[in-house]
């Protein structure tokens, strides 16, 4: 991953230049857990996307009165398809758990990614603005951050959810009809998880602001916005990337907590979280109903945590040799 670059300014010395990303990638590759995590995550994403080519959502919602709660591997009778084998078994309404895992997983991962995007955008923006402009802006934004940080996230989230959970209508997104609670859960998780990142960004910006290249840009009259986006943003990308990765995992697991406490995504829209929660009553007799969602949540979050750990090491400027 090295490139030979003939620099114009230093024609006499041909050197090997490694961009920071190349170095990071090399180090990431060496992080065995992170590589394993990448493969696991890739496999899960394949499962929830490619899976839809084999099974339609309607097939996942199909109920079977005489094939309820069939254990994995059993063959049940379907009135249209005849005898079919249920790889992951069926649930209390006779629905195929495998297909529910695919479509529920889509929602869980989508919740993770979109709420992460909201959280990262808010966190970066607020941190940048507050660190760069200072003064009143900083004081205002910092106190908002601090207020939000003073209430544990789950408590804040639960109080907010209680205000929104009564809306039970559905919306259509990307051709799937889903419960509106999905949107609330995404917005709320996003809106309650940006504070730590914003603090990190703010302190980074504060120190960057004093550095020469920023001072120089200011001196020659580059506009504030341009400085923020062209000079500051690229330099704080490392913590943002790490926070973004870990944020997806946190959001997926938070959704499961909300479901457990009765404030999560409402049926009929399935997520790994609410499928898992519905299955905990029958730990022994219907083990496949919690083992599969539990496995998917844990392994997705685990993979994401491995990746985040790898990224953190790889992007840590202190450990660049």
């Amino acid at each position: 991953m090295t490139t030979k670059v003939a620099s114009l300014r230093q024609p006499e010395n041909e050197v090997e230049v490694h961009s920071i990303w190349q170095i990071a990638f090399r180090r990431y590759r060496k992080h065995r857990m992170a590589v394993l995590g990448t493969f696991i995550l890739f496999a899960i994403i394949l499962f929830v996307t490619v899976g839809t080519l084999f099974y339609s959502e309607a097939a996942g919602n199909k109920t079977r009165l005489r094939g309820r709660e069939a254990p994995p591997g059993s063959i049940i009778q379907d009135r249209d398809l005849g005898d079919i084998r249920m790889i992951m078994g069926t649930d209390a309404a006779g629905r195929d758990v495998l297909i529910r895992m695919i479509y529920g997983g889509q929602i869980s991962i989508a919740i993770g990614v979109t709420s992460m995007i909201i959280s990262i955008t808010l966190g970066t923006l607020i941190g940048l603005l507050s660190g760069y402009f200072g003064g009143v802006v900083d004081r205002f934004l910092s106190s908002v951050t601090e207020v939000m940080l003073s209430i544990p996230a789950l408590i804040l989230l639960l109080v907010l959810s209680s205000a929104f959970r009564e809306d039970t209508t559905t919306v259509e997104i990307f051709g799937r009809t889903i419960s509106r609670t999905v949107i609330y859960v995404v917005l709320l998780i996003g809106a309650t998880s940006w504070m730590r990142l914003s603090r990190i960004v703010r302190s980074q910006v504060l120190s960057l602001k004093e550095q020469e290249f920023v001072q120089a840009a200011r001196a020659i009259g580059v506009r504030d916005l341009a400085i923020v986006f062209r000079h500051l943003l690229p330099n704080i990308i490392a913590p943002v990337v790490v926070a973004a990765t870990l944020g997806i995992g946190t959001a997926i697991i938070t959704e499961a907590y909300l479901s457990f406490l009765g404030f999560g995504v409402q049926p009929p829209t399935a997520t790994w979280g609410n499928i898992l929660n519905g299955a905990l009553n029958q730990v022994e007799s219907r083990w496949w109903l919690w083992v599969f969602p539990g496995f998917f949540i844990t392994s997705t979050v685990l993979a994401i945590n491995f990746i985040g750990d790898g990224l953190r090491d790889a992007l840590d400027p202190r450990s660049i040799e």
Partner: peptide, 16 residues
């Protein structure tokens, strides 16, 4: 590895 696994599990699943 163990700490990563428990860290990635919902607490209610561990508890139950």
């Amino acid at each position: 590895t163990l700490s990563f696994v428990t860290f990635s599990m919902p607490i209610f699943l561990i508890a139950l």
